[in-house]
Design a protein around this nucleic acid. Structure first.
Lengths: 340, 340
DNA sequence: CTGAAAGCGCTTACAG
DNA sequence: CTGAAAGCGCTTACAG
């Protein structure tokens, strides 16, 4: 295995000079630089990141904690992060962590506590004090994309505004009996993504003067297509006046709900308007009205912030205003219309 | 930052003894071990993996190359790999690599060439000679899950048999005009997953004495729901005798095809039987007949093999017979029936 | 069972 | 602009 000593010998310089030539740090005569580089290329020298990390304290590696990889939103975020990190010369170490439990503690107390990552990106994870403290102790920048808990920087969509916007779209079309298919846990954790969307729904309804009780139906279900399907089946099969519109907390849920409506012989949008959230890749095919967000881009932004915090960024770009929410956009397609 | 020297001092032993006590390698008096462990716990000592790697040559880190994270199959595989690696104390470094291009070369020649991973798992990637050589030179075990190219171990489904089984199911129901929605590139790369499924289809058709030309339709499309939708629209909208059954190369394609059939007013399974491949989480909801495979389990198996190759595995378990294909199973639901 | 010493492969002050 | 030396934090023969 070629080491830097071999390169130095071949180029007729010291290891120090070889190191400087290869890393581009410090002064090296141009002619020397070229000789060193030729030598390195010749013997196929590749620096050992471990050895370099040991002395610089930088690993060029970022840990990503993400609750799912197999939901559209999270997959997109992960791809965005991966691409951005790779092009900055960073590795991505993946921690797929959802439930609280011993596995989770192990990641924080063992895996992330080691000096193997320079920073951590937490996607939609609600960090508790112990977890935040564990990262703080190691002085690792923590960037959060959604989720709750004290991070050094936080990027998030204004999910309350999203919930409000989606609901207002339905109200604006003339609907009054509007149901909300919320993500599980929405009511217990009002600060969470799903909780905020629910709050936004309630905001819009009460602003429209529609009493929350009786008239409105909220049902919580798993944030997935089958979750939306099952949830909608309950919501729509319930005796009593059926809602004329449904705000589903994600596109996957919305598509499940559309499927459920078909099953029950309820026409969309004739008998039921459906709106989702996400801008899922399937949304267009299902002609779904939705509030789009851009998870791939969000991942890229999170990496930008991380690099900024690590002092990597030579560009004069200001930090994206931490207060400003991430971009979202209402896209109206064929699953919403005025009530009959 | 607490180092092993601090632990040693606190416990009143040498660094060597502290190291042995903490790692469990080499002899240490039980009483000493406990003292060292108490000291480590007290000051929150955590070993630096970089320093350890430098001397042992082991990083406890595995690189995973995967073309998508956001397709069901790949997401499941990745989750399976992640879980298995984590529980073995390994990190997972993710390389999301699909297209050939400069980015891809960079991963092989730079990222993977460094000594940061002990082994590589390549999921459904067709490695060329240069890429294999690049890993071989670094002496890194390479385990492939699907895909082509010389790996040290390869796990794969018998996709030809899968294609054959799916087609035979349709033939057995009495269908003769059977179309195949193949994955793009299937005909150019007969050795690939999609190519093999197509071969299996052809095998079954010709075994049934149905001439391949004229009677059978094969269309290639992107392996995704929209791909299946668009492809099926073409296949079913074509003038001439319509197929009575469709073998889609993946469940996502099959679901897209079902959607297309609905759009065209073609009843499934009355006018058209549809079978997919995968056992996608949505399959049940769409009552899809499919040939299931178990990607999460496949990921776990790949990790098993990697650990075996790294000599990690103390268990006497024999290597899973490398020749034996991975498990698949025909699951009949409501999208296939006898032709009218 | 334990310790002193060497060394893994690099980078970084420090002199010159 | 370049080199000699120290040191990052660990582990592993080697003696004892």
């Amino acid at each position: 295995m070629a080491a830097i000593g071999d390169v130095a010998r071949l180029a007729g310089v010291s290891k120090a000079t070889a190191s400087r030539a290869l890393s581009g740090r410090g002064y090296v005569a141009e002619e020397t630089r070229q000789r060193v580089e030729a030598a390195a290329a010749k013997i196929g020298y590749i620096v050992s990141p471990d050895a370099a990390s040991l002395v610089t304290g930088r690993t060029k590696n970022v840990g990503v904690i993400i609750p799912f990889v197999n939901r559209w939103f999270f997959g997109e975020v992960l791809e965005g992060i991966e691409r951005a990190l790779l092009s900055a010369g960073y590795d991505l170490t993946l921690y797929n962590l959802s439930e609280r439990g011993p596995g989770r503690a192990r990641v924080f107390d063992f895996f992330l506590a080691r000096k193997r990552v320079d920073a951590v990106i937490a996607v939609s994870v609600d960090l508790d004090e112990h977890e935040v403290a564990s990262l703080e102790k190691r002085e690792k920048p923590l960037v959060a994309l959604g989720g709750t808990g004290g991070a050094d920087a936080r990027l998030s969509v204004d999910d309350r505004a999203v919930g409000q916007l989606a609901t207002e779209h339905l109200l604006h079309l003339g609907h009054a009996r509007i149901a909300h298919l919320a993500g599980s846990g929405a009511s217990e954790t009002p600060a969470s993504v799903q909780g905020q969307r629910r709050e936004g729904f309630l905001d819009a309804m009460s602003a429209a003067g529609i009493p929350a009780e009786g008239q409105t139906h909220i049902l919580e279900a798993e944030v997935s297509l089958p979750g939306g399907y099952t949830g909608a089946l309950q919501l729509l099969g319930h005796p009593g006046p059926r809602p004329t519109a449904l705000f589903a907390a994600s596109d996957e849920m919305a598509i499940g709900a559309i499927r459920a409506a078909e099953k029950l012989g309820i026409d969309v949008p004739g008998d039921l308007s459906v709106i989702g959230v996400d801008g899922h890749e399937y949304a267009e095919m299902f002609e779904l009205t939705t509030v789009e967000q851009y998870p791939g881009e969000q991942g890229r932004l999170a990496v930008d912030v991380v690099l900024r915090l690590l002092g990597e960024d030579a560009t004069a770009d200001p930090l994206p205003d931490s207060g400003a929410p991430l971009t979202t956009r209402l896209v109206v397609r064929a699953t919403t219309s005025a009530p009959r």
